[in-house]
């Protein structure tokens, strides 16, 4: 049999051509800047490892690291939980729910609204004195004094997590459903005939078969989540208030680069974040595939 594997290069060549020019070049330039004291304009001077040394002792970066994880983690758990439950319901052959297209579209809506409108909306809902949330809670009698949601570190972080969940669960749901629809119906029919209950069908068929898709969601959500930035920036004063609790890694990076003009240091922060993401992604890959590493398919 003649070797067709060289075709692989043809298939991936266009991608790499464009990728090299438009993605890798700017990113490599950022790497160069991380060794300079560049301010975003004018000339850059090489400063060696100074930026990285500073990064290692920067308490604000450490603070940002933990904040980002807290906010992303809560959001991810909720969002995946919701997406999976919804997928389980909609893929259940016994329930046979109607209107999946409708619900899918509606659940995706929050993702369509520009982030500044989202921030504006929740800023008003969560307002201390006049927010609808506090008014409602006070009317029902759960609280007697209004809670300043965005002024307490814990509730501020939780607010961001919940807004993120609201924005993204529809997205995850669609992706999960796309994966579910790729699974052959034969499996489910066989399961039905064997009398498997819902949970068994879901955990023994859907989840294992969805593994590649779930891996995709986890990795992309991690990458996106660790780059969380616009909501915390818009919801309070843009520098992480209250008490630094909304200071996320990319917000910190952004402020260093574009507010304080420490462009070189911001580049180092970017690479710090990059290494962190890399490490955690590796853990996810290992966790999912570590024991049963598949052989690459031979042609």
């Amino acid at each position: 049999m003649k070797n067709l594997n060289r075709y692989g290069y043809f298939f991936i060549a266009p991608f790499w051509l464009v990728f090299l020019v438009f993605s890798i070049y700017p990113v490599a330039l950022t790497f160069y800047y991380s060794f300079t004291n560049y301010t975003g304009s004018g000339e850059a001077q090489l400063v060696g490892l100074a930026n990285y040394k500073r990064l290692l002792t920067d308490t604000y970066f450490v603070e940002a690291f933990f904040n980002t994880w807290k906010i992303w983690g809560v959001n991810f758990a909720l969002q995946m939980g919701l997406a999976l439950i919804l997928a389980m319901i909609f893929s259940d052959m016994r329930v046979k729910l109607k209107g999946i297209a409708f619900f899918r579209a509606i659940f995706y809506l929050p993702n369509l609204i520009t982030i500044s409108s989202v921030a504006l909306l929740f800023g008003i809902l969560l307002d201390w004195q006049h927010g609808s949330l506090n008014m409602m809670l006070m009317k029902v009698g759960i609280i007697s004094d209004p809670i300043n949601w965005l002024n307490e570190p814990t509730s501020a972080q939780l607010s961001i997590s919940l807004i993120l969940t609201w924005m993204w669960f529809g997205h995850s749901f669609i992706v999960v459903m796309a994966g579910v629809s790729g699974i052959s119906k034969d499996y489910y029919e066989a399961a039905l005939i064997d009398g498997a209950n819902r949970w068994q069908t879901f955990s023994k068929i859907t989840i294992p078969l969805l593994k590649p898709i779930l891996l995709y969601i986890m990795i992309t959500s991690l990458i996106g989540g660790l780059q969380l930035f616009d909501l915390p920036m818009l919801l309070t004063d843009g520098i992480g208030s209250p008490d630094g609790s909304l200071n996320t890694m990319v917000l910190y990076l952004y402020n260093q680069a574009f507010k304080y003009n420490n462009y070189g240091y911001a580049a180092a922060v970017a690479y710090g974040l990059f290494v962190i993401t890399l490490i955690f992604s590796a853990f996810i890959f290992k966790g999912m595939y570590g024991k049963e590493r598949k052989q690459p398919r031979q042609v």
Binding site: I124, D127, Q129, N134, M138, P146
Partner: peptide, 14 residues
């Protein structure tokens, strides 16, 4: 919003 509202009418404070 309440800052704007306060210019013209009384506002509620808790």
């Amino acid at each position: 919003p309440s800052w704007f509202e306060g210019m013209d009418k009384p506002i509620k404070v808790k």
